[in-house]
Simulated scan of single mutants.
Amino acid sequence: MNSIIWPKGYLPGMTDNFASNEIIVANLSAAEVWEYLNNTSQWESYYSNVADIRFHNVSGPELSQGAHFRFTTFGFPIEAEVLEYEAPTDSKPARLAWHGWEEGSTADDALHVHHAWLIEDLSDNRVRILTQETQNGKAAKEMAIEKPNPMINGHQDWIEGLAKEAAQNKHS
């Protein structure tokens, strides 16, 4: 199986908080899942912890390399820039990653994240959906000690909702 590609300063274990969520689902392909992750207008239909999605430098709602967008999640207004964008092919998994920062934050309370997705086809008509996020900043330190960790629970809802949405709308 493939793994996330981490930029400098965001390697898990070296940041203030880390969340990793993964599911493997039968009878679904990476391309079918990608359709609902790539199109941000679909997010609110299957993930209740996201709102107010807007694009700055592209029209959206589809993501793209270098897209700068904004959304609210976990109560934080997040500005984000897509750093990695690869749709799935027959030989390669889908990769999506953005750097995000809290809108209006100061140096003292800044929250910076690297949120990455890996969606890959597996044998026997299965798909693996992996999302991982590393975070730095005061809010990240606070979330890291919360039990249960809100990032882990929130991202689990996201990947399960994503898989369910793709399965329910599967093209026959």
Score class of each variant (00 low, 15 high):
S45V: 05
E133M: 11
P77R: 07
Y85V: 08
F55S: 07
A110V: 15
Y85I: 10
A116K: 05
L111E: 08
H112R: 13
V82T: 12
S45P: 00
L111N: 08
H56S: 08
E142G: 02
N125L: 14
A139Q: 14
W98R: 02
F55W: 04
A107E: 15
E133A: 07
H112D: 09
I53L: 02
A116I: 05
G60A: 08
E133S: 06
L63N: 06
G75T: 15
H68C: 12
E32V: 02
T89G: 05
M143W: 13
T134F: 09
I129L: 03
L63Y: 06
L130T: 07
T131H: 05
D52E: 12
A80D: 08
H112S: 09
G75S: 12
W101Q: 04
G104W: 05
E103Y: 09
H56W: 04
A94S: 14
D90Y: 02
N136Y: 09
D109C: 06
M143K: 08
A94C: 07
N136C: 13
E103W: 10
W43I: 04
P61Y: 03
F74K: 14
V33Y: 02
H115G: 04
E84T: 11
V50E: 03
S64P: 11
S59W: 01
N125M: 12
S123E: 11
H99Y: 12
F76V: 15
L83I: 12
Q132N: 09
P77C: 06
L130H: 06
V127K: 02
H68S: 08
N125G: 12
T89I: 07
R126H: 14
E120M: 01
G60F: 06
G137I: 09
P88L: 12
H114C: 10
E86W: 00
L111C: 11
Y36M: 10
E81W: 03
L83N: 10
E35H: 03
S29D: 00
S45R: 08
M143D: 08
T134M: 10
A51R: 12
E84G: 01
G60R: 01
W101T: 09
R70K: 11
A144Q: 14
E86M: 06
T106W: 10
T106P: 01
T131F: 03
Q65N: 14
